[in-house]
Design a protein around this nucleic acid. Sequence first.
RNA 1: UGGGGUAUCGCCAAGCGGUAAGGCACGGGACUUUGACUCCCGCAUCGUAGGUUCAAAUCCUGCUACCCCAG
Length: 365
Amino acid sequence: MERIVAGMSGGVDSSVAALLLKQQGYDVVGVFMKNWDEKDEDGVCTSTADWEDVQDVCHTIGIPCYSVNFEKEYMDRVFSRFLDEYKKGRTPNPDVLCNREIKFKAFLEFAEKLGAEKISTGHFVRTEMRESRPVLLRGADTNKDQSYFLYMLKERQLAKAVFPVGGMLKSQVRAMARDAGLSVSGKKDSTGICFIGERNFRAFLQNYLPAMPGDMRTEAGETVGRHIGLAYYTLGQRKGLGIGGRGDGRSWFVLQKDLKNNILIVGQGEDHPSLYSNRIEASEATWIAGAAPMPEGVPFRCTAKFRYRQPDQQVSILQSGDTLFIEADEPQRAVTPGQSAVFYQGDRCLGGAIVDTAIPIREKR
RNA sequence: UGGGGUAUCGCCAAGCGGUAAGGCACGGGACUUUGACUCCCGCAUCGUAGGUUCAAAUCCUGCUACCCCAG
């Protein structure tokens, strides 16, 4: 009987994933990962509660369960880079790294040591063999598709993974959990950084990044406020600026970071022109198939997402050396350095790259 | 010091005798496995002390503060 190690977070999705595998006759072993040790703002250690949920669910399903600790790996391979990026004034996405380095690497290796052929997670994505090679497809529930977070995986990682709920709708997953009597069937979807959880983001960052106050200025150079450190803001952000009543009365948004002078450039209006770009330069391109879908220097038409859950955007991409040039058909709002651009061809996720620069539209030449 | 003006929520700002618009900020919630965006809800008795009136943020008087002009 084939053994599968089910990664279980204590949430509905991974629980139902394990349940489905069990029903399909696999030798399922549930494993809970603890990768972060800290209480939340209320002094509650959510991972303890989640671990209890996992034990509960495993008991109901009738599978053994274990817990494994990757705190060190998470800190070394994910969180340290996360902080480095912030220190550079960028806005990283820790979860794409977490998937590549932890869930589909450290955890996968651990599962193999347990004698498992494969691992499962509760991600809403599908895989399929095409020409005897695994491809990553969007989840069937277009509203919950999580392929964006898995673009850094490679074929050999995909080949070792199963995503039992990828073909289902979220509503079906919940219904199945309820019918099976899983205690977590009504549990709220978790959000926030994976393993760290939902928290006051600014306060959280303040534990790791030094304050470096400076001016907030308009593009014209007028000082309109103070910031507590450029790292605490991201492009297109509105909340937290604390500027009210100035100018034409509209809301203020972060337009740019001037790291050299420690100045946050802000402007009014959700649709401020400086927030829009259609030419983006990215690097660290990774392709699930191992190589880009097009030769170097040749443009390629596909769709892209510049943030999770963004509707597909029509783009042309062109690789030149280490740089990936992206040209979007439509203007894109607040494309942010450090964030990921993920590429698709139909339902298939091809890979992605990390944004370095978004060139404002009005600088077109 | 003399003359004039203004004082309404943290900020901007309606109101002109009939019982406090709106925007921004902020707080809460929804959405969301990153960060954001978005959406919904909440949020003042009118500088102060008196007076007139059935009724005052709205009229009158004193006080206080700030602004402008003058010299």
